[in-house]
Amino acid sequence: MDGAHVTTPDAILDIKGLNRSVLVKPGAKRIIIDDFNFSFSEGQIYTIVGPSGSGKSSLLRLLNRLDERDDGEIIFQGESIDSIPVQALREKIALVFQMPYVFPGTVESNLLYSRSKKHENERNELIDLLNRVGLDEMYLPRNPENLSLGQQQRVALARSLSMEPEILLLDEPTSALDPGASRTIEELLTNLNQTMNLTLIIVTHNFRQALRLGGISLVLIDGRIIEAGPTKELFENPANEQTRKFIAGELR
């Protein structure tokens, strides 16, 4: 994957030569994203799969500029993300974290959290947001801190959707949840992708989850894409030795 770069015509997010390193000690640099090149198409589901510590979270954080890259280009809808005001960018490229954080208050206040500008929100709009994540209007007045983690993650998802993002980044959105709640979220995500044509980039350390989600997978190891392609083919017939090791559970 590295080196060769093809920009697809329907690219929504085009990444070229992306690098990020951190100073672990004064003078000691550690590369965590190593020459990442990829072109994400609009309306697709992507999963980024790899062992823990391979740089998956770091990659997502570069895409909504929670962290700053060392070099490389990130082109969103034909425009470098540097020329888009950061706060506006984060509404267009939304990030959902592994551990849902809900703000104290009500589910309603959480759904309104990101939208201070357009204040007179229709109640119907909020109900619609809840429905999209499989909850109903009964939840609006509830204190989200008393909900189960799975329900909190759905509130977090609805809260991100309230920004009407073009791309949704999800960092291991189910790894804090039990298997039942995980499946629900997976189904919600594929549904959102189909009904809203929302581009999803989902990080997971579990290739079985990637298989359930479908779409296109990128295998990330030590900050590099070692293999990418349609999820089913990739994991049923991996070309790369390290991908095989990862599937066999030898890489954690």
């Binding site: 909504n64 929670l66 506006a88 984060r90 939304a94 954080y101 703000f103 990101s114 991100s160 920004m163």
Partner: peptide, 13 residues
């Protein structure tokens, strides 16, 4: 950090 970065990710300053 999680609360703050959640806010930032929701477009807050």
């Amino acid at each position: 950090k999680l609360a703050i970065e959640t806010s930032l990710s929701l477009g807050k300053s």
